[in-house]
Amino acid sequence: MVETETRSQQRSLPSAPGRINLRAQLHQGLAFASLVILFLFFSLASEDFMEWTNVSSILLSTAVIGILALGTTFVIITAGIDLSTGTGMTLCAVMTGIFLTNMQLPLVVGVAGGILTGALLGLVNGVNVAVLNIPPFIATLAMMLIAQGLALVISGTQPIYFTDVDGFINIALGELVPGLPNAALVLFGMALIGALVLAKTLLGRYAFAIGSNEEATSISGIQVRKWKILIYTLAGVFTGVAGVILAARLNSAQPSLGIGYELQAIAAVVIGGTTLSGGRGSIVGTMIGALLMSVLTTGLRIMSIPQEWQTVVIGIVILIAVYADNLRRRRAS
C-alpha cells in the first residue's frame, strides 16, 4: 500500500524542479490539451487557419508576450510578481532607438544597450524587493509607472523610427529559417535558455526554494537577497529582449505602447500552471500558456469575432485554466 502511494505521488510531480521532463510537464494542467483542441477546432472552422503563413503569424504575435512571460515565470516561482515588464519593455525599445538613431551606435551595441536597460530595471526591482523589503507588487508597480514616464520623457512622446538602421527590422521579421520569422526563433531560443536555467542551475533551484519557503531557504544558508536580485535582473533581461523584438517588429519604438502587456504575460504564466503563491511552475507551461492566448485571439479573429469579445474569452480561459489546475492538484493529494 505504501508503495502504490509513492508511485501515484511520483506521477503527480509535474513541476518539481530539477527536470525538464517534457511528458511530465505537459501533464501539468489541461493547458496543452486545450491548445491542441483549440488548434484542431479552428482548423476545422476555417481553412485558412492551418495555412503556414497563419501559423507563423501566430508565432510572431506570441513572441513579445511569450518572452515577457518567460521572465515573469522566474519571478512568480519565487512567490513574487513583476508588473513592470510591459512598460519596461517600452522603455527598452525607446532606449534601443536612442542608441541606434540618435547616437548612431552599431546595431549590436544598440541592441545590447536595449537589453541592458531591461537588466538594469530588473536589478532595481530586485534591490527594492530584496534589500529594501518593498513587497514585489508595490515595487514593480512603481517601476511600471517610472518606466512608462521615462519612455515618454526620453522619446519626447514621439515614436522613434528605425528606417535608417540597416538590418534592424530583420531581428524580428527576417527569416534565418525560411518561413519562420526570427522573432519566433528568438522566443524558442529564450525558452530553451529559460528552461535550462530553471531546471539545471542554482538560480532556478533557489527560485523554487525561495518560493516554497523563503525563511527556510535563508536558514539553510542560502543568500536569499542575492538570488532574488539576480532573479529579478534575469526577468529584466527578458524584458529587454522583448523590447528589442517589439521595436524591430514595428520598426519603431512606440513610447505609449506597452501598458497591459505585463498582465497578459502574467496570464500566460498562470495558464501554464505556475502558481502565484510560488514554488511551482515551468517554462514549458508558460510557453503553452502564451501560445494558447495567441491561438485563441488569432482563431477568434479569423472567425470574425469582434476584438472586444476576444478579451472576454481570454479572461474566461484564465479562470478555467486555474480552476482545472486546482482540481488536478486536489485529486493528486
Binding site: L202, S212, G221, I222, R280
Partner: peptide
C-alpha cells in the same frame, strides 16, 4: 518548526546550498 522547502524534493532539500555541479554551473541531479 520544520525548515523545509515543501516544493523541492527530499534530496534537493537536504543538499540545498551544497548542490553538486558539473561543467561550471549546471546542477547534477
Amino acid at each position: 518548526e520544520f525548515n523545509l522547502m515543501a516544493d523541492l524534493t527530499v534530496a534537493q532539500n537536504i543538499y540545498i546550498g551544497r548542490e553538486p555541479r558539473g561543467g561550471g554551473f549546471l546542477l547534477r541531479e
